[in-house]
Amino acid sequence: MSHHVVEVRDLHFTYPDGTEALRGISFRLTHGEAMAIIGGNGAGKSTLLQHLNGYHLPQRGEVRIGEIPVKATTVTAIRRSVGSVFQDADDQLFMPTVFDDVAFGPLNFGLPAADVEARATAALQRVGMEHLRQRPPYKLSAGEKRAVAIATVLAMTPDVLVMDEPSSNLDPRARRRLIELLRSFEHTRIIATHDLELVVEVCPRVIVLDHGLIVAQGATRAILNDEPLMLAHGLERPHSLRHLHPHG
């Protein structure tokens, strides 16, 4: 299905204060692929993600989701097919109950009540949080909040999932559940994270950003094993790979 394809070509973005956040980013992702975006703080990861759902529009270059270029007139369609999970789940959950929150997106699409109900329930079941449907979101644990935030996005049946630091603030068990969940998705996935172990487990592909440029991209294991490259860009070689290649 062609609308699962994500294509970014020569993307530039400068903030009003003059910070050049993106200086020519290009990549192409096809259906069902999972790709990680890694890089130090301020490398441009979040800015890049915000271009994928049309929150920022390209100042130069182009972003395409499937056949549709991201621009002011297409953002509604773009947001239907790209689901974003934010770094801070509290920014994403704003309705009085978990269920209302998950139903918010489908309701905005103007679906009939029965469909909204079914979709919201299915999304909550998918992340294993159906038992929390009547709870107020601000009273959940960090792991529950993250799972519910993912459900709010799944309820919109997106083709592409974009996630910013999905494993931050999670305890080991919640993080493990999240990893299994991410691995089970058939969506095209783009994950910006500092959690390199998660990258190893979830994403076969990776791009390394530094100062708004792609400094490396390709197969995850090859790139993450390149110690000089990782160190040069504020990263490090993940522990799990060291164990696999003790002499590498």
Partner: peptide, 20 residues
């Protein structure tokens, strides 16, 4: 950030409720 979260889920200025 919250507003961005609402936009990302298709908020268009109308708050819809499920309960009829």
């Amino acid at each position: 950030r919250i507003y961005r979260g609402m936009l990302a889920r298709g908020f268009d200025g109308e708050v819809r409720l499920l309960r009829p």
